[in-house]
Design a protein around this nucleic acid. Structure first.
Lengths: 403, 403
DNA sequence: TCTTGTTTGTTCAGCCATTGAACTTATAGG
DNA sequence: CCTATAAGTTCAATGGCTGAACAAACAAGA
């Protein structure tokens, strides 16, 4: 889901003005920690009460926000009526294709998860077509569940652990996919009529983290079987020229290091990927369970601790380069890294403080993912609602056009 | 020079609308390769001829653009009068503090360099105060020269080979500076009354390249005594949290590599910095002349070619990481690298094609700087005019307020 | 209970920038 | 000299925001 194209080179007319303020007011409503009154929105946004009133009316008519029952709040004066994101209204569908499961979830405009379902299915044993069919079935159930809650699905985003360009999945190494086209609309069941997008799993996870934590700029690194990443700059996801930004798994740690399946040598995945950690710890590879690694670390097993130290060091080298390049103050560890953070952190922070030139004035903060393994799924769903929040006018236009 | 703060969270009123379109029209005037008429601007921008007319009037009154003498162009119908950026109008002052010289230049709104002066001065032998004084003298001469051309200085930016934060130069290793405060206004002579900014040299060079080449997104790497870099994303300079983004010189090439003066080990500068290249080639270090290196390469001297191959390899490893992370399609080599590009390129491109995962679908383009060693100086000056082009309304407001 | 003071939300005239159409100006070509 | 074409200007209409006035809803005190 590419971010809304910049309007820098668009002409601005009266209507664009309204469009902007529509989004501005809606953002205040969704971002506030307590339902704001029209007057509070006006004070916070800099618009006048009159303008806010007409804008709120338009948003209510469009089903994007709703008035709360007038509750008597403390204080003198006429009490304001709280404005909340509509509990009934558009819903975003997030879907995830991962190595050994499919998942689907739905969020409303507030970002709350209203539906969530998971189905174990090993993609390596099936064709992409079977995957799409199973996903369509899950999505159909989600659409039904969401409708029962009074919500209207407004679009869907599929998270895939690979490189996506346009309508093609270029490569998804851990699924064993190459040049897989997206399913045709007619194969998608109830998703047929919804705007659909596909994006990289780690990129969407970064988006999910951004909403969950409120962080403005950070580097998200997710360690699962592969290592993915996403970059959030000033609140916006940064996608790069083709939407492939964040691929930190194949940053070079040692030019003479071990061969990597990507064709290069000494990539980060060869040191800090799950398979590499397990191999170094002397644990059986192939199993996608994390428990033995965590238990080994808890028991202070020397080979496990050494393996995690080695992984943390490599991660530190790679992240130092990224931080030097981007001048980003925070790193978020997601996926399996979130559970392993306590044992990765010492080596990681040691390398960061040594290799980031600006570390002495501005140390890099390392934190665990807030959403854990749900980050990509929720991020995908939120990408849909975020698009509505960013440009409510467009949504309202399509809505009224349909009616 | 921080980019214009985003207006995402600002309320929009009628005036902002005009402000936006003012910038839009001005951009069309400066970006066109041939002076456009009002009608052409209207067609290209999507505004109506009526609106463009009133906006052009406002820009002419503010001295930002001018009408050309009506020249008879081919074709039937009333000929349009060309609109050009005002040759007389605001000028941007660029200044550069480098290891062994100071420089000053001035550009007009078209980006043309109207004045340029260089003075040899080795900063390592003098105090920062002496540097500032010498720079102020150069700036005074530039202000006088610019005034003689009918231009009005509108601001200045100083390029420094170091890390800048707020009003302090945190560290400039090659100048031997640490925690050097900016000069006080009263020590600045004619610069006293102008808005002044300081920024990293490589960052500004990237900005200069952006204007000179029209590239929308690229990574700029400048190899001089140190290695600096700048990142341009979608036409905008990316500064990072503190404006320190682009520091590629201390990306790790080999975690076990030679010690670096930054406190880390195996940094890119230890392989591809000028001193490192000279040492590997068996040439005397310390001299800041490039000629013997270029001549050695032309003569196909084996140690020189080997040293450049080694540097290109290291550069390739570092840039591969950056491209994987940012998904940027173009790399621009500046500073001394621009002259050495023919000998760096083979190893550099070899590493890029091997280590960038997306290289097989989208190869990375490597090109030499268009501005060469003037990039930072011109970029600094253009930062001033760019700020005016980005927000002409603000400039017009200050201008009329002063009058 | 009544009055006063305070804050919310709405209404309305005024303002401002853009639009679209009509109009004027300037050229080429027959 | 007349016609066709395109550039630039003028002007009433439109849409959206503002500010001020006003009505509504509540607390506190008399």
């Amino acid at each position: 889901m590419p971010p809304r194209p910049p309007r820098r080179d668009d002409p601005v007319r009266q209507r664009s003005l309204r469009d902007h303020n529509l989004a501005l007011v809606l953002r205040h409503v969704t971002a506030a920690n307590r339902p704001p009154s029209r007057a509070e929105i006006a004070a916070a946004s800099g618009l006048t009460r009159a303008t806010v009133s007409t804008i709120v009316d338009e948003l209510i008519a469009g089903g994007l926000v709703a008035e709360l029952e007038p509750v008597s709040r403390s204080g003198v004066g006429r009490p304001g009526t709280g404005i909340v994101p509509a509990g009934t209204g558009p819903a975003g569908l997030g879907m995830e294709v991962n190595v050994d499961y499919l998942a689907v979830c739905a969020v409303d405009l507030t970002g709350a998860v209203r539906h969530r379902q998971l189905r174990r299915l090993d993609q390596r044993e099936h064709s992409p077509a079977q995957t799409w069919q199973a996903l369509a079935e899950l999505a159909d159930q989600a659409i039904a569940a969401v409708a029962a809650l009074g919500l209207t699905p407004a679009g869907g985003v599929i998270a895939v652990p690979g490189l996506v360009e346009g309508d093609t999945i270029r490569i998804a190494p851990n699924l064993g996919w190459q040049q897989v086209p997206l399913p045709r609309p007619e194969d998608l069941g109830g998703l047929r009529d919804l705007p659909l997008d596909v994006a990289n799993e780690a990129t969407l996870a970064a988006l999910g983290e951004r909403h969950a934590t409120g962080l403005r700029s950070f580097l998200y690194v997710s360690g699962e079987i592969g290592i993915g990443g996403g970059i959030v700059l000033d609140g916006e996801l940064f996608g790069g020229s083709h939407g492939w930004a964040g691929e930190i798994g194949h940053v070079t740690i040692d030019p003479q290091g071990p061969d990597c399946h990507c064709g290069s040598r000494g990539c980060l995945e060869q040191y800090a990927g799950e398979e590499a950690i397990r191999a170094a710890a002397g644990l059986p590879t192939g199993a996608a369970v994390l428990t033995d690694l965590v238990e080994g670390a808890r028991r202070e097993s020397t080979p496990v601790l050494d393996a995690l130290d080695r992984a943390g060091t490599a991660l530190g080298v790679a992240l130092s380069g990224a931080v030097n390049l981007l001048d980003i103050a925070t790193v978020v560890l997601g996926g399996h890294y979130a559970e392993l953070i306590d044992w990765l952190r010492p080596a990681l922070e040691r390398e960061l403080s040594r290799r980031v030139i600006t570390a002495r004035w501005s140390p890099v903060k390392v934190r665990a993912s807030a959403l854990g393994s749900d980050a990509a799924l929720v991020g995908a769903a939120r990408a849909v609602t975020q698009a509505i929040l960013d440009d409510p006018a467009r949504f309202l236009a399509t809505r009224t056009a349909a009616a």
